[in-house]
């Protein structure tokens, strides 16, 4: 059974006769435990795709199934790591991590215990009492990661989560993500601009066409062995081959986008 299945999904913000599709004709199946990345030019509807899978937006037509069940509302099986800050500024790091448990009615003491375990996993145990504005950008991302994973979602949706971080912080976040992921291999949909990031993390990379009416145009399996280290994996000759192939596809789309925006 596929974890995620999109059949003939179209999406448009407008309603009416003349529809201007953001996404059109998306057919996609993702098996459970797969780490899938989407790359595509700016404005190709990558975030919209994640919103659809999370059930935060509904497709204009087509169907979404998660684990064989047709979805209509918000999918609480999904954890979502947003591009920008999603931490609540009035809650401490620990309180932010336990937010999902509190909302689900978990008793305070066991929520706090589990929260500390997760803060330890993202190496922030000693910062549990700090408010978000007292943490660095990388620390805030790690809190957000713990916050997303603590409720044990079956599917993890990530929308360019590390794009605002500097290169070193970013690589260590990527390694941390791979570490945490390898523990129970959730299904991951990862959206990024960055081909290298996509390859080094994923089992499968899909290239989206330039918008509007964006859709998948090519896909590449990534067979590099795991566990991987995102620094080292980039030196493998296979890595460079895939990177070249993906860029050849993506380049045309980027040029189309640029031509449209100029």
């Amino acid at each position: 059974m596929d974890a995620i299945k999109l059949s003939g999904v179209n999406f448009s913000y407008a309603r009416g006769v003349k529809l201007d599709y953001v996404l059109s004709g998306i057919d996609l199946a993702v098996e459970a435990g797969q780490f899938l990345s989407f790359v595509g030019p700016t404005g190709c509807g990558k975030s919209t795709l994640l919103h659809l899978i999370a059930g935060l937006s509904q497709p204009s037509s087509g169907q979404l199934d998660l684990f064989g069940r047709v979805c209509a509302g918000v999918n609480t099986d999904c954890g979502y790591l947003f591009q920008s800050d999603s931490l609540l500024p009035w809650r401490t790091a620990l309180e932010n991590v336990t937010l999902g448990l509190e909302i689900r009615g978990v008793e305070k003491r066991s929520a706090t215990e589990l929260g500390m375990v997760w803060l330890d996993r993202v190496q922030l145990k000693n910062h549990h009492h700090k408010f978000p504005h007292e943490l660095s950008g990388g620390m805030r991302k790690r809190v957000a990661l713990a916050q997303t994973l603590i409720t044990n979602p079956k599917i993890l949706l990530m929308d360019e989560p590390f794009s605002a971080l500097d290169v070193q912080t970013r690589s260590s976040m990527e390694n941390l993500l791979l570490d945490l992921w390898s523990a129970d291999r959730k299904t991951v949909i990862f959206v990024t601009h960055d081909i290298e990031e996509a390859i080094s993390l994923s089992d499968r990379v899909i290239v989206l066409s330039a918008g509007p009416s964006s859709h998948p145009i090519a896909e590449f399996p990534v067979l590099l062995p795991r566990p991987r280290d995102v620094f080292e994996v980039r030196l493998a000759p296979e890595f460079l081959t895939i990177q070249r192939e993906i860029w050849a596809k993506l380049k045309q789309e980027v040029e189309k986008t640029n031509a449209r925006l100029m």
């Binding site: 999370a54 935060l56 918000v74 999918n75 609480t76 999904c78 954890g79 979502y80 947003f82 920008s84 800050d85 999603s86 609540l88 009035w90 937010l99 999902g100 509190e102 909302i103 689900r104 409720t151």
Partner: peptide
């Protein structure tokens, strides 16, 4: 911030929980 709302919804927040954990404190 709509992201706070979306994030709390995905955690399973009902209307009342959204009010309590997101809208009221902000």
């Amino acid at each position: 911030n709509p992201i706070w709302v979306a994030s709390a919804k995905l955690m399973g927040g009902s209307r009342f929980k959204l009010l309590r954990y997101v809208y009221l404190p902000s």
